[in-house]
Amino acid sequence: MEMFLYGFMQRAFQASLLISLAAPILGLFLILRRQSLMADTLSHVSLAGVALGFLLGVNPTLTTLLVVAIIAVLLEYLRLIYKTYSEVGIAMLMAGGMAVALVLMSLNEGGSTVSIQQYLFGSIVTITSLQVYMIAGLTSLILLLYIFFRKPMYVLTFDEEAAFTSGLPIKWMSILFNLLTGLTIALIMPILGALLVSAILILPAAISLRLSKSFTGVILYGIGISLIGMFSGLVVSYYYGTPPGATIALIFIGIFIFVTVFKQFASKKA
């Protein structure tokens, strides 16, 4: 247990705990709103924000937040235009975000390619105390919003038109939800990496969907699975030197396969 003596490992565990509390909530809504790819899109777009920050020489977190906020709103607009094929907008922006990031990086030739690498693959073990505080703030915000707005969100997610007829401001709710997702991704992307951030948001909720029949149950299971996956991922990556983000994602996929096979087996037996 000597790993807990290192400050960076302590911070990594703190950040994992905080992310585990919030990620399954966002993840479940993303899945049910058929926006699970949105997380991927926003993280690709975040890279463009990071690249822009390096190019302009300002704090990349700021530019990322700004860019992601704009795109999150734009996504809602595209979702309304392509109502039945809501993934079209997502695909377009995913490619667009990556393209802008690559072009901006090439403009910044000889600059900070190393840092871009870090954003691409993330590095939970280089996390700073400031980042832990920011994630603590984010997690508190998400938990508070969930406790306060869980009923309107349940109805919105179940049926948008019924939500509209019962008087909910569905457009604003969707935009704010996208913004919150964007904010989350912008903050946790440097830790988990742009390529894996969506796995951490989506997979725990996807697994727990198979385990519980109630809405609240899915979220609670999701938090549990998220904690197991992230903690064990950190431990494995510490002892074997594997990249933490990828290790965590693989453990989630392992849990998913285990649960699916187990459920199949159980339902055959029954």
Partner: peptide, 26 residues
């Protein structure tokens, strides 16, 4: 207050994680 039942509501999202009670309470 309006109560709307759309056509073919029965084909709603089968994977939606909710018990009957949760849905009717909503």
């Amino acid at each position: 207050i309006i109560g709307y039942i759309p056509q073919q509501v029965a084909s709603f999202n089968a994977g939606f994680p909710s018990t009957v009670l949760e849905l009717v309470r909503s």
